[in-house]
């Protein structure tokens, strides 16, 4: 049980606002970890720090022992950290297949000359990339949708397509920002199954989610944030009983 991702004393300050303060936790390889907390607790900010969309103000983030804090997002993806976005960011005007090929980009290498000369190596690579992309679409439950435009997919399917795009980059750690957002009960059930199958592939998952039934069913370990600080950490059963967590979600008696 080694930590794949380590956050230590991570702090992010926007102007005068401390969005994330001294947060530290480990994401253990092979597990599904949930990051929960009320709105504005700093969950998405933490994700953006991990994926390099923001720079940490203080603290360290290490992936497989390697600091991520000064790397650009595309380098972090290459190292094996792929993400989805809270407010779905697909390439809406492109097909599902092309969207997934975006994730394939960093694992392929054909350049300008390969494209212009269309060398045998380039063509082989293209075929393999398409095959892998189709396989990922099947995996997330979008078989036969490869040539549909992303914008024409149902909301839940768009979320799945984003996961397929992330998976195509062969991540070791998959970071999902509210994957069940906007999904109905049945779709959420399927998502829990999908997360299980992602875990079975040996991919570690870190997710933000508001749907507590999903969090409790899918996660092995949970970290709770409130006002940018970590207030609890543990397995789902312990988190459900934690007094501070209950207070954070329901409010204290004095406050109500």
């Amino acid at each position: 049980m080694s930590a794949l991702l380590e956050l230590r004393g991570v702090t992010k300050i926007f102007g005068g606002l401390v969005a994330v303060e001294d947060v530290g936790f480990d994401v253990v390889a092979g597990q599904v970890m949930g990051l929960i907390g009320p709105n504005g607790a700093g969950k998405t900010t933490t994700f953006n720090l991990i994926t390099g969309n923001y720079r940490v103000s203080r603290g360290t983030i290490a992936f497989e022992g390697r600091p991520l804090t000064s790397l650009r997002t595309n380098r972090i993806v290459r190292l094996g950290v792929a993400r989805t976005f809270q407010n779905i960011r697909l390439f809406q005007q492109l097909t599902a297949l092309e969207n997934v090929l975006a994730g394939r980009h960093c694992r392929t290498s054909a350049g300008l000359l390969g494209a212009l000369l269309r060398t045998p190596g380039q063509r082989r690579e293209e075929r393999a990339a398409v095959a892998r992309a189709i396989a990922e679409l099947d995996f997330v439950g979008l078989p036969g949708r490869a040539l549909d435009l992303a914008k024409n997919l149902a909301y839940g399917d768009q979320r799945r397509l984003e996961i397929a795009r992330a998976l195509a980059s062969e991540p070791k750690l998959l970071v999902l920002d509210e994957p069940a957002g906007g999904m109905n009960e049945q779709e959420t059930d399927q998502l829990v199954g999908l997360i299980g199958r992602i875990k079975a592939r040996g991919i570690t998952v870190l997710l933000i989610e508001h749907d507590m039934t999903l969090v409790m069913r899918a996660c092995d370990q949970i970290v709770v944030l409130e006002y940018g600080k970590k207030i609890a950490e543990g397995p789902p059963a312990a988190i459900q009983r934690d007094r501070r967590v209950i207070e954070a979600y329901l409010g204290t008696e004095e406050a109500t």
């Binding site: 969309n53 792929a82 960011r89 697909l90 390969g114 494209a115």
Partner: peptide, 29 residues
């Protein structure tokens, strides 16, 4: 030919959504 290649696709991703392109592992710069 360029349009139909990995290079051409990368440019399209960049045009459509640079943040998503970078987040998918494309060196947008």
């Amino acid at each position: 030919r360029l349009e139909e290649s990995r290079f051409g696709r990368a440019l399209t991703f960049l045009r459509e959504d640079a943040v998503a392109a970078e987040g998918s592992g494309i060196d947008t710069t």
